[in-house]
Design a binder for these strands. Structure first.
Lengths: 195, 195, 195, 195
DNA sequence: CATGAATGAGTGTTCATTCAT
DNA sequence: AATGAATGAACACTCATTCAT
């Protein structure tokens, strides 16, 4: 029914990101996205089931690329510590370079409804699995604590980075996000306590 | 104009938490909250400016108590490590005992609009300041790394705990949250890397 | 049920005129009138059947005095021409001295509903009858055209004066109303055509 | 945004006149007008900004034609006296033939709010200017008193005719309005006093 | 494929009125 | 007589979705 390809499909996805970033989720009417994408309102429904589907697709498309980029970069790393470093860096640098998308993921998409949350959850899982992989490898290599709770460690990593980006967006993306990679990396590896 | 005391005020606040937790923010009509609180629709507006004000008040009232409890418990602790432990424990145990409120804070309130976000931000700041205090004290006592970036460390602590609670709520609050206090505490103190 | 005397009755009437003149009919809530009269909302209903009754009573009370004043002044006049002059003068001077009441009669009360219109009609009739008396006397005395249609002449007199006051109110009561008595009088007596 | 043409636009305008004339301004809900016009509630908002805009448009559309008709007919007249006669006749005959519109202009539109009054004022001014033209011409031709106050004379003419129509509407449009043209004309030209 | 005019369900808020005290 | 907290009916407007062209 809804065909998920074609240049109009992409145009709508891109328009949606721009509109949501600019006007906020609650002011992103279908007709506004249509206008921004220079298509008719009805055309939207040739490519998307409904409004939620636009939002979910936006996230999937963009997040898909995001994760792929992370995975590729990590694969170039040597040590576990480097992989973790690259993960943090890839996450922050990508959002840093695309503040509009950052606004959408950190703020606007969380203001949406349950159905969207679920749709998003699916893709996020892939990302979390990527993090899990690094942690498990670290344990297997004897670098990380062997009794580490993988899911817990993942929550620390994801939760910390996510909170960092949210703070940055809330502060109008005014400061340099990349400079935080190093301190985050250190916190993850060695924690708060001095030796 | 809107008087923020009285038993009806409390009844509405409590009804709002129940209704939002059960039906979600977007299905929490004023009339539904009124019915749940056993008052007339119009009565709501004797105690609250508007719908947003209900949400903000819910958060302020409940979060106010939450923070106070955290602060009190922390003041009983001896070492910095204990204080951090108690913070994590207080946070998780309180939400653990009130899953309805947890749902509201972790999911529903983030789906609200800008005005609500602002109202919430104020109170949250108090909590973050509480965390900052612990970190600064840890540095001053020479227990934490002296070059620690306080705001970054705070983001790790808050981000990790927040993500932990969100995960728990998303998984229907099925598992024991308190058992996570210990691993979180260890992660915060010593990080991922084995010595 | 509603007792129409007492100092609170008067206080409410006066408060209503002030509130309506200042905030307009559609912004004159019962509670606002009550506050202005320094009585409780419920007290209003000890003196008035309902909101419409306040409005009607305002008009009756004030218009009653208005008509009485007109009648008294006219009785002092000698000729018919003088009586007509005095009528115009009494009408314009009274409203001129009380712009608040003028606003209420010319603008606000006409924005009210059917029931109020009817209540007002009753009192107005008394005024129109007063005008009729002058016209009939004029005809009887052979001063006015004998074939004059009394009701039509009355409509001219009332319609012209009323339109004059409305214009003046719409123009913020900025100019002198009394100076119009003379030209109106001339128009009534001799019409437009030169002899 | 609101496109002010098309058959649905006309249908809504006409429905509004019927509904308001029948049920009164305060009982003319948008949904009622929509039902009468056989369109959906939302369709109203494709053609009108808001409810007030319907009322204003009703007046402008109908009053526009009204004024145009008056102007055309007057242009066929010879003497000033004839022009005045035709003005009165055109005014009364048009409303006489459309009692529904008469009810709306004389009663219901005056019960509306300030914004509507303003919208209406604009068009009315055109009509008053038309009257002014006749008076000025009468003075220039030496037929009317040279010291005539044009604005005052206009108020007499408009006020008298307006009051005449209002009376007629209040009396359920039961008697013949046209038969009043002659006496009104005489009053305007020669006033009350016999020569 | 594409259009965009038309649809109509859904809801926060006001305020005249009541009545227990 | 007086109060004022509580009531609940009423309504304009938005916007996701459809479908005839």
């Amino acid at each position: 029914m809804a065909k998920k390809t074609g240049e109009k499909y992409q145009a709508i996805i891109d328009a949606a990101v721009r509109v949501i970033a600019k006007h906020g989720y609650h002011n992103s009417q279908v007709s506004r996205i249509a206008r921004e994408a220079k298509v008719a309102d009805g055309t939207i429904y040739l490519y998307f089931e409904n409004k939620d589907d636009i939002l979910i697709s936006v996230f999937n498309e963009k997040m898909g690329q995001f994760i792929e980029t992370c995975r590729e970069r990590i694969s170039t790393a040597g040590t576990i510590q480097e992989k973790l470093y690259i993960l943090i860096h890839a996450h922050l640098s990508q959002l840093s370079q695309n503040p509009e998308f950052a606004i959408v993921t950190q703020i606007e998409l969380r203001q949406s409804n349950e159905k969207i949350s679920k749709g998003i959850g699916e893709v996020l899982k892939t990302y979390l699995t990527l993090i899990d992989g690094i942690i498990e490898e670290g344990i297997a290599e004897g670098i990380f604590h062997e009794e580490l709770d993988v899911r817990m460690a993942r929550k620390m990593i994801y939760g910390t980075i996510d909170e960092t980006v949210t703070s940055w967006v809330m502060k109008q993306c005014k400061y340099d996000l990349i400079s935080l990679v190093e301190p985050i990396h250190n916190l993850f590896l060695y924690g708060l306590v001095r030796r």
